[in-house]
Amino acid sequence: MTDDSKNEKQCASEDRRSFFLRLTLGLSGVISAILALPAVGFVMGPILRKPARVWRSVGKVEDFDEGTTVLVEFEDPSPQAWAGLTATTAAWLRREGPAEFVAFSINCRHLGCPVRWIEGSELFMCPCHGGVYYKDGEVAAGPPPRALQKYPLRIKGGHVEIQTSPVPLPGERPRSA
């Protein structure tokens, strides 16, 4: 065997090796992509596909007295069969006049804890870090950066209906404070 043919053979085998290396790395990348894309898509599903908002009746108009604030419960837009209790949501419903209603989200705007309506002082108070709101939902004291969120609301066929909405999150509107 001449030196030339030896060198040629070595070159060829180096080419083969680097080809195999690139082939293996490339195929590993292909496998990763084939697995990762649907997996990432699947777990991101809740962000990418949102349930349509629906109107839920929370009671007849005459069930609510003027000037009162009461807790009403309603069901999520598309509750899973296994959701059980967690499919329910609540709102503080206030009747302000014959046909004027306001529905507040029960989530404190500080960190999302459930606010309670204190009848005597006409305030909403949060048990977590002491956020307080007036009866119109405006911040009265404590750490909340803004007013309680209101649900879209309508009166239809003598019923008060609330439109299901996402829980209020800080990023949804520009911060006022």
Binding site: V43, M44, P46, I47, K50, P51, D76, P79, Q80, A81, W82, A83, G84, T86, A87, T89, N107, H110, L111, G112, C113, C128, T164, S165, P166, V167, L169, P170, G171, E172
Partner: peptide, 28 residues
């Protein structure tokens, strides 16, 4: 509370929070 904290992340906070909740409310 965890979702509200995550929701404070600039720009993608809402998406992170809804990713954690598996939707836009606490549910099934």
């Amino acid at each position: 509370v965890a979702a509200e904290m995550a929701g404070r992340v600039p720009l993608i906070g809402t998406e992170i929070a809804q990713f954690l909740l598996g939707g836009d409310t606490v549910g099934g």
